[in-house]
Structure formats: C-alpha cells, structure tokens
C-alpha cells in the first residue's frame, strides 16, 4: 500500500508523536519502505495455520488474593515530573 504524508500525520497522532515537517517527509519514505517489506508476509500460505501470539504454551499462572503494602511514597513520586498533594499533576484534560 501507498503511504502518504496524511497517513503519517494520522499514525503520528494515534501514536501521540509530534513530528517536525522534516520528520514527516522522512517517515513517509521510510514507512513506505517498511510496509513494502512487510508485503513479503502475503507470500506465506497460512491457510489452516493457527496464529501463535506466544511461542511456548503458557496457561493458568495465578497468584493468591493477598494484599501487600505498596511502594513507599517517596519512591512513588521519585521520578514524577510534577506532584501535588500526593497526586500526579497533569495539564488540563480538555
């Protein structure tokens, strides 16, 4: 498929990535290259083949319902860009 600058803008928005104009141009080309490469996937005959989201059979790993103390407050906020009154502060939502 053909990737247009509009597609790149949409993908960047959905991925929450602000791009410069130069980046948009560069990604239009390189994403096109990547997708052309991925067209290789179509060559594989996968009729009657099951999808494998993981490689080893893994089932039913559980833990018991026991509460434990959480992280100490200073560790919770140790890396926080902005803290206010014991919460993570963010700019306006809307």
């Amino acid at each position: 498929m053909k990737i247009t600058p509009k597609d790149v803008e949409r993908l960047a928005f959905v991925s929450r990535l602000e791009l410069t104009d130069e980046e948009k141009t560069a990604y239009t080309r390189s994403l096109q290259e990547s997708l052309s490469y991925l067209d290789l996937l179509k060559q594989a005959d996968t009729t009657a083949v099951e999808a494998a989201e993981r490689v080893l059979p893994m089932i039913n790993l559980f833990r018991e319902d026991k509460a434990q103390p959480g992280l100490a407050s200073e560790l919770v906020f140790a890396n926080a860009p902005e803290e206010e009154d014991g919460a993570f502060k963010v700019p306006r939502i809307l």
């Binding site: 206010e84 009154d85 919460a87 993570f88 502060k89 963010v90 700019p91 306006r92 939502i93 809307l94």
Partner: peptide
C-alpha cells in the same frame, strides 16, 4: 474537567 487548568491523578 472543562474548566480546570490542571488535574491530579490518583
């Protein structure tokens, strides 16, 4: 949500 300049997350 519409009038606040910031929000806090818990």
């Amino acid at each position: 949500i519409t009038t606040s300049h910031s929000s806090c997350v818990d």
